[in-house]
Design a protein around this nucleic acid. Sequence first.
DNA 1: TGTTAATGATACCATATTAGTATCATTTGT
DNA 2: ACAAATGATACTAATATGGTATCATTAACA
Lengths: 132, 132
Amino acid sequence: MKLITRNTDYALRALCYMSKQEGLVTVGQLVQKLDVPRPFMRKILQQLNKDKILESYKGQGGGFKLKISPKKIYMVEIMRVFQGPVGLNGCFLKKDVCPNKGKCVLRKKIRSIEEGMLEQLREITVASLVQH
Amino acid sequence: MKLITRNTDYALRALCYMSKQEGLVTVGQLVQKLDVPRPFMRKILQQLNKDKILESYKGQGGGFKLKISPKKIYMVEIMRVFQGPVGLNGCFLKKDVCPNKGKCVLRKKIRSIEEGMLEQLREITVASLVQH
DNA sequence: TGTTAATGATACCATATTAGTATCATTTGT
DNA sequence: ACAAATGATACTAATATGGTATCATTAACA
């Protein structure tokens, strides 16, 4: 089971790297540092730019930099960008078929697991990943 | 993000239903009760049979019944049957490229979330799902 | 002012996983 | 013998993931 997908993973690493750099960072640098396919990395950064987590500068000497403080870049937000809303889906049967009618026990249990997960997840920021 | 897939879901419902029945239960009954495609339900039950969670009886008047007590049928086990080992995968980069070297912070955080999840998951049995 | 080095946008492709379907074989009660 | 059940197995469809490929745009700089 996957908590995060590759693009989320790569995005987080890129963000961590950038949080330690002063000026602009290019795709080329990241590709070299992180060993990720270049076009894939580009796509990821472009997405982060669209979502206002990065800002970009075109042309020679251009590149990317963080738009907001690493302390305010939450992992759940990055997950949301690349994986959609973060949470655990419930059951698949339509309500009127569910053997436990309205108060489905399974649903509740899953919901509770989800809560625990989110509680921990929400504390993770790029800043918290970088500090050692 | 999916905690459980459809076959796990359907399997759990089928098991819940069977835990409340005395004798044998046929695919036909389950299909009717749960509104799941018949061949899909068959496949699921056959799998549960292979994994010794159900026992089956062929021929006219045949069907399935639980092989072990609902108290001993753990949700994680059903998940394992249909989804493979339960847990959260870590990161994707090979170790020597990981920016945080050996002690990857992300990995640890994910591991911790996984622990919390498993702790809650391990308590769920078919019996615990049926009681209201 | 033209070349070059960067990103922007977009469409496409490959692979894996999930969610089934279809079919034939086997068993067993009537 | 027939019908009603499961066993085994192979195939198919839909979706998500993990990318590639290409052309357009921008801006520094010689």
